[in-house]
Design a protein around this nucleic acid. Structure first.
Lengths: 204, 204
DNA sequence: TGGTAAGTGGAGACCCCCGTCCACTTGGCT
DNA sequence: AGCCAAGTGGACGGGGGTCTCCACTTACCA
């Protein structure tokens, strides 16, 4: 525990943790637009407490989702270690899409918190994925005209499922991903040129 | 012009038309959550005028999008007449997705206005599409395990592109659709079972 | 056990939205 | 020209959101 954590009084620390847990729950269930008051109520604290620990709603969102973002990066790193490039590629897409489908706030959080905060981290992640794509192409399993920007395309498309109930969203996402992966496989017809969908576009 | 139209005074009629035009513009540009006040301002009228012609925001939305919905139905009807079932199938998906990508409010309007209002029309449209799917399967061009519910899947996925600028959304949508159509083509690997995504799911 | 700084909760300031009300204006018929 | 129903706009009520302020409570240490 760093100083900033342990300097809090015991009860305060516990409250902070509970708020964070509740926030993650509610963001996942209902998306990012749950009122701060709802989080406070469910956590059994007043709004003021909440705002003391997290000066703004966005800061709460960032904190609530950092571990998920870390998991994302980890998934890519791990996939780069897979001896089968295609399997690594598929794993990344499947995992990220599953996270997106499971957690309703995920995409919105990704979009609204990444912009400035973690730009270098973001770039590293992006490069990691680009490398993964390159490997998969070289192995001849990924179609040559696949663009790394197509990851953004997949993410956006998959985020469209956020509106339906979670269990449905998960199955739907799996089917969508299965369709897309099939289309990404090498040896099919030519496509219209890749769309330069940089992540910045997703970020407003 | 029916009675309800011509009974309006000339200036009122003009105002009504301008409001409708502006509403369509703004809904397309910014989605359904543009404030009524913004529409009124851009149309050069007060909010009261707007509310007199359209008693509720939803009614304005419905009116603003009816022609697009009609166009949707027309697209399906026409596709059923195409001698090439696969081409008909592709046309439907391409056209609807294009409409969705072009008009930011389209999906939300579709979702929020269809529920009760046009249930029989909706069912007819749905049956039309199901017939289209059946034909395309029989001709051997559409994979046998494609489910009509997959249309909803495509619509949801495509709606995820609504966030990016329109020109980008259009190219992105085209590429997404191209990928998906390729995956829908007969003669590929088996998929996980279809997800029963009824339209009602999209409609909240 | 008592003092004190840290922590707390709820009221409310501020803002943005939908939809209404009402005093004023104006088109169109006679 | 003059009348009046039809039409109009802006102020306002009501609701819901984020975030602040401040009088009160409580953990912790001596």
């Amino acid at each position: 525990m760093t100083a900033s954590q342990s300097q809090l009084r015991a009860d305060a620390q516990e409250n902070r943790a509970r708020v964070l847990a509740v926030a993650r729950e509610l963001f996942a269930e209902r998306g990012l637009d749950v009122p701060m008051a709802a989080i406070a109520r469910r956590a059994g604290v007043g709004v003021a407490t909440l705002y003391r620990r997290f000066p703004t709603k966005e800061s709460l969102v960032v904190e609530a989702f950092t571990e998920q973002f870390a998991h994302c990066r980890a998934v890519i790193e791990e996939a780069l270690l897979d001896e089968d490039p295609w399997r690594g590629f598929c794993t990344v897409i499947q995992n990220v899409c599953l996270m997106q489908a499971t957690d309703r706030g995920f995409t919105a959080a990704f979009v609204s918190t990444f912009p400035e905060l973690h730009s270098e981290v973001r770039d590293r992640t992006w490069e990691g994925f680009a490398a993964l794509v390159e490997r998969a192409k070289e192995s001849g399993q990924l179609r040559a005209d696949f663009s790394p920007h197509d990851l953004t395309l997949v993410l956006l498309a998959n985020s469209g499922l956020a509106g339906v109930p979670v269990e449905v969203a998960v199955s739907a996402s799996q089917r969508l991903v299965a369709y897309l992966l099939e289309a990404f496989r090498a040896g099919t017809d030519a496509l219209p040129p890749p769309v330069p969908l940089s992540l910045d576009l997703v970020l407003r």
